[in-house]
């Protein structure tokens, strides 16, 4: 099974927004829903100003918190590492939007669902490329199989000294003008998600279970002692 990933070479990206728009066209998105976004940065003070562009999107994390918090299982990580949303199953609770450390999810108020970059999985299955890769004039994006050492992606990662955003499927070649601190941070599960899923849910279920157990024990003891009649 392939492990899909993407390299974004920011030394080539000119910030034309082509990826944003091609993706919106392919997925028929609302204008305010953008699966991939372009951010411009300026560093220094006039007249010594340098600029750079960073694109962001769903990072297809190794352990996606969005999938963890999804109450319906609509968000799932597939065996090929692509994180998908089953839009039929999504109830629009927006838990995933909060949980995402990369702010990579958008709410679609018309369908009352949350959407994000799917790595164009159904096109990829047919051997095609994601829309953003296909459209990029500067060939700044390379999509492929990270497990296949001979893939164009794996070779480019090695030869261009790309930086992996740890815990995710995304690699960047940082822009010449900007250091790596302008890139998305390495993956860390948000504290609120950890406390909610690891402590509050199991702890709270235990409290309810203990309360139910106490009530049942009380009912049993009262029945044995008094036949359940009023004292």
């Amino acid at each position: 099974m392939a492990k899909y990933g993407m390299l974004i070479d920011l030394t080539r990206c000119i910030g034309c927004h082509g990826c944003t728009v091609a993706c919106q066209a392919r997925w028929d998105l609302l204008p305010q829903v953008q699966f991939t976004k372009v951010h411009r940065y300026e560093v220094g003070t006039f007249p010594r100003v340098k600029g750079g562009v960073v694109t962001t999107q769903c990072m297809h994390c190794d352990e996606p918190p969005c999938a963890r918090v999804c109450p319906t299982g609509a968000t799932q990580k597939r065996a090929d590492d692509i994180v998908v949303v089953d839009e039929q199953k999504c109830i629009g609770c927006r838990y995933c939007q909060q949980a995402c450390p990369y702010d990579a999810r958008s709410f679609n108020p018309q369908g009352n669902i949350v959407q994000k970059c799917y790595f164009c999985y159904d096109f990829v299955e047919k051997g095609q490329q994601p829309a953003c890769v296909e459209t990029c004039m500067a060939a700044a994006r390379i999509f492929g199989d990270l497990d296949d050492k001979g893939s164009e992606l794996s070779r480019a990662i090695a030869s261009r000294k790309a930086v992996q955003i740890k815990g995710t499927s995304i690699y960047y070649v940082p822009p010449r003008n900007l250091d790596a601190s302008f890139l998305p941070a390495d993956f860390r599960e948000p504290g609120a998600v950890r406390i909610w899923q690891d402590i509050v849910h199991p702890g709270g279920k235990t409290v309810m279970g203990l309360a139910a157990g106490a009530v049942i024990a009380g009912l049993v003891i009262n029945n044995i002692k008094g036949g359940g009649k009023n004292a």
């Binding site: 838990y95 909060q98 949980a99 948000p190 609120a192 998600v193 406390i195 909610w196 402590i199 509050v200 849910h201 702890g203 709270g204 279920k205 409290v207 309810m208 203990l210 309360a211 139910a212 106490a214 009530v215």
Partner: peptide, 20 residues
């Protein structure tokens, strides 16, 4: 983000109290 775990915790604790 923090409202969610607090809302869940309150619900589950008060659910336990309700049973009693």
């Amino acid at each position: 983000a923090w409202a969610l775990p607090l809302h869940s915790a309150g619900a589950l604790l008060m659910g336990g109290v309700l049973l009693g």
